[in-house]
């Protein structure tokens, strides 16, 4: 499948992005946000919801951002004893017509390790999503406060 982010519609105000086949968008980014960091020594987390409006399953393989020297998607799990841990999520499949929540409620986050600069409330940073078919999708992520619970409460 050929896609191009040249046709991406970045709606600056709502911080949403759209991955587009020349005329047909297939992946929409909604509810992207991140928490501010305290300095650069702690890892950061970013969140987003991906919606596949196309006809085929899309496979998200990773992300890049100049904000962090290492970044990957993590899954948070809580075992039967209530112990919580996180581990790399691996490839994330987004079936057609479905949404994947990389959000606190969805049990996933984008882990931003070895920050290159502090994440400051009110600022934004650029993230590029990488897909298995080689396509990329770039968009801006707004930074909310450390105690934020996401865009719906901002």
């Amino acid at each position: 499948m050929r896609k191009s982010n040249a046709m991406m519609l970045a709606v600056a105000l709502t911080m949403s992005g759209t991955l587009a086949l020349a005329d047909e968008p297939t992946i929409e980014v909604e509810g992207a946000w991140a928490r501010a960091s305290i300095g650069v020594s702690r890892p950061g987390a970013a969140y987003l919801t991906l919606r596949n409006t196309g006809e085929e399953t899309e496979t998200l393989t990773g992300l890049q951002t100049d904000l962090a020297m290492m970044s990957e998607f993590h899954r948070t799990t809580t075992d039967d004893q209530g112990v919580s841990s996180m581990s790399p999520a691996g490839d994330i499949e987004i079936p057609p017509g479905e949404s994947v929540l990389i959000q606190p409620d969805g049990g996933m986050h984008a882990m931003l390790m070895r920050l290159t600069r502090p994440m400051i409330e009110g600022e934004t940073f650029s993230v590029t999503l990488l897909f298995a078919d080689g396509d990329e999708l770039a968009f801006d992520v707004p930074i909310y406060g450390i105690a934020s619970r996401g865009p719906q409460t901002e």
Binding site: R35, I38, R42, A45, H74, M111, A147, R149
Partner: peptide, 17 residues
């Protein structure tokens, strides 16, 4: 722990709410 990127700030935000 304060180096916790996801679970701890989420829980402390929930508690705050």
């Amino acid at each position: 722990f304060t180096y916790c990127p996801d679970v701890c700030p989420t829980t402390l935000s929930d508690i705050s709410a």
